[in-house]
Design a binder for these strands. Structure first.
Length: 605
RNA sequence: GCUCCUGUAGCUUAACUGGAUAGAGCAUCAGGUUCCGAACCUGAAGAUUGAGGGUUCAAUUCCCUUCGGGAGCACCA
């Protein structure tokens, strides 16, 4: 719809000889201003020597005479400073429900479909999977879904931190203090690995020579020392045991390298050619302290980027360059790469992108750092080295517990004492119990994901248990709850002999062309019809929170509608059918939206 | 020291990239279960958008100054 109106306006501007201005059409904030509004007239006022109101009137007249074939427009109103407010024909809005119901709101990007690599999650082997990695995992997954839902080809990659100096430290720690047999048998060997890692840093503070030991072991690893290799491989196996569990719990998948993603180690033998290319292009220099660095032209104000350490060992940057070179060869030049990585690496990515541009690999638009803010504690940053992290596992467990309890809170008890007694002694059948647990899981993960996605992802989040596990108000469970209620209303209608789903959609919708709306019905219809526009916008901006905001508003509009307008007890059959149609489409839209955000939609709660 | 990010009701935040009366949720107060299902709904109160200047028909948004918060800046990733 938005695109159609944009095209219309563009045509008119050409008519008016100002084709260099691109008309802006935005969703009106309130139905008082129509469905769409444009500020072109005010922008044009300076270019042409006329008042904004005059120009707006002119545009209005032209819109009326152009009259698009499908009767898109109902009326056009020119307002105060020079807004052109566009009211979409009501019957046209109703006809849009068909696409929503069929789940094929056609994404008409005019054949503009791109190939994306979305790189996200990227946890480090032998380090805890914390709420920090959770952000990248959740946001990256949602972005990938968003791009896919708007018709793009998406490769989901996990740039696992399975290579680097940390392994030198880790190997030293295992050999010095660890017990391999115990760890093999352990339920959660990653916890042991982290404990060793923390111990290493504790001891290194007293005895700085340990740092050199760590570096030496990493060099050995890179040089192919069998013992180093063996222990490195073990760390990976231990960690994957953990990751697999977490990803399946979060319902997140990757498509590349058989679902594991291309970790850093994959590029071990691909770094040499990068170094040669850098040398051949005369970009590599020896820095003051002996390392190999790349310097940037001074107008970019970027500090030098180190490529090789003075002992010749590789760095993150070396591996990233090898990764992107590989991508170029493997996926072709026309690819857009999105790195979903914390904002603290912002400078590093600017250096990396600039270097890749200097190498002639990519244009700037092809490389995007989608940064997310950190989780912070009141007292400061989380740090693996110091051991003050929140394990994802603990968050999930607590969330499940709260979601589980909430299901019982719905029953009203005479007083808290009895409530507690009943809940403690309640004996559920085995099947019933797992059913409730499964629902609790969907709700718990929904709460966590929504909390991460509902806000602009770039800002830091202060870690707060009640916040991350919120199940009221603007929360995941609220959305799921509205969805469940929609289903339940439709179920009820069905048992009253009205089959909403079964009817032929085309026929049913044309029944309502002359329908007179109550304002609550119209507001809901209007909100539903915005779905496609919002979806595209969110995808374009890589901003899942825009979708969240929309869905939450939709839920509120729906609740308001249902509160004010009788549905099952409507005055007549037509009314009842139309209202049920709205309920049904609302359910479809929420379901689709939540799935794009990576959330489950339980059928009962 | 330099660079980047950030500051919106008590708290968490939105604002379609410069547009219309700054929109919500939590918490507070007052109400609401004869459509499904109170994980809900209705209403009230709460904002000089950190402060000061500038650009413009129009500034939370852009520019300058200033204060507070965060992050990064050579062998970590």
């Amino acid at each position: 719809m938005q695109d159609q109106i944009k095209q219309l306006l563009t045509k008119i501007l050409v008519d008016m000889n100002v084709s260099d201005v691109i008309p802006q059409v935005s969703l009106s904030s309130s139905s008082d201003h129509g469905e769409f509004s444009s500020n072109v007239a005010m922008l044009l006022a300076k270019k042409i020597d006329k008042s904004p109101m005059e120009i707006a009137e002119e545009i209005k007249q032209k819109l009326i005479t152009h009259k698009p074939a499908d009767n898109l427009l109902e009326k056009i109103v020119v307002v105060k400073p020079g807004f052109v407010n566009i009211y979409v024909n009501r019957a046209f809005l109703v006809s849009q429900l068909k696409y929503l119901l069929e789940g094929q709101e056609k994404i008409d990007g005019k054949g503009k479909s791109y190939k994306y690599i979305v790189e996200y999650s990227s946890p480090n082997i032998a380090k805890p999977f914390t709420v920090g990695h959770l952000r990248s995992t959740i946001i990256g997954d949602a972005i990938a879904n968003l791009l896919e839902a708007t018709g793009n080809k998406v490769y989901r990659d996990n740039h696992l931190g399975d290579w680097g100096t940390q392994f030198g430290k880790q190997i030293y720690a295992i050999k010095t203090w660890g017990n391999e047999a115990e760890m093999d048998a352990s339920e959660n060997p990653v916890k042991d690995l982290v404990a060793l890692y923390v111990r290493f840093h504790d001891e290194a503070e007293k005895n700085p020579s340990l740092e050199d030991e760590g570096r030496a072991w990493f060099k050995k690893l890179e040089d192919g020392d069998p013992e180093a290799r063996r222990l490195w491989k073990k760390c990976i196996d231990w960690s994957w045991k953990e990751f697999n569990r977490i990803y399946s719990e979060l319902n997140v998948e990757f498509t590349e390298n058989e679902g594991r993603g291309f970790g850093e180690a994959y590029f071990e033998d691909k770094m040499q050619s990068v170094i040669e290319e850098l040398k051949a292009k005369k970009l590599l220099h020896v820095g003051e302290q002996g390392a190999q660095i790349v310097e940037f032209p001074s107008d970019f104000k970027l500090p030098p980027l180190m490529i090789l350490k003075k002992d010749g060992a590789t760095l993150y940057s070396t591996r990233d360059l090898a990764t992107d070179k590989f991508r170029l060869e493997h996926y072709g030049k026309a690819i857009i790469i999105i790195n979903e990585v914390g904002g603290e690496q912002s400078l590093y990515f600017r250096q990396l992108y600039k270097l890749e541009e200097m190498l002639g690999w990519f244009y700037p638009e092809q490389r995007m750092h989608k940064k997310h803010g950190l989780y912070r504690f009141q007292e400061g940053k989380m740090s693996t080295r110091k051991g003050n992290v929140i394990w994802l596992e603990d968050v999930l467990d607590e969330a499940k517990k709260r979601a589980y309890n909430l299901q019982f809170d719905n029953i009203s008890y005479p007083n808290d004492e009895i409530k507690e007694k009943v809940q403690n002694t309640i004996q559920l059948g085995k099947g019933e119990k797992t059913e409730i647990e499964d629902r609790a899981k969907a709700v718990a993960i929904g709460a966590i994901k929504w909390n991460d996605l509902k806000r602009n992802s770039e800002q830091d989040i202060l870690f707060d248990w009640d916040d991350i596990l919120n199940m009221h108000g603007n929360s995941g469970p609220y959305m799921q709850y509205v969805y469940v209620r929609c289903l339940s209303i439709l179920e009820k209608a069905k048992s009253n002999t009205l089959d909403v789903e079964g009817q032929d959609v085309q026929e049913r919708i044309s029944d309502f062309e002359g329908y007179t709306f109550k304002s609550e019905e119209f507001e809901l219809l209007r909100q539903l019809c915005f779905f496609e526009t919002i979806l595209k916008q969110a995808a374009k901006e890589l901003a899942p929170h825009m979708l969240c905001t929309y869905l939450f508003e939709l839920a509120q509009v729906f609740n308001h509608f249902y509160q004010k307008v009788p549905v099952l007890h409507a005055e007549n059959e037509t009314q009842k059918k139309f209202r049920l149609l709205l309920v049904s489409v609302t359910a479809k839209v929420i379901k689709k939206g939540l799935h794009i955000l990576g959330m489950e939609t339980p059928e009962k709660m």
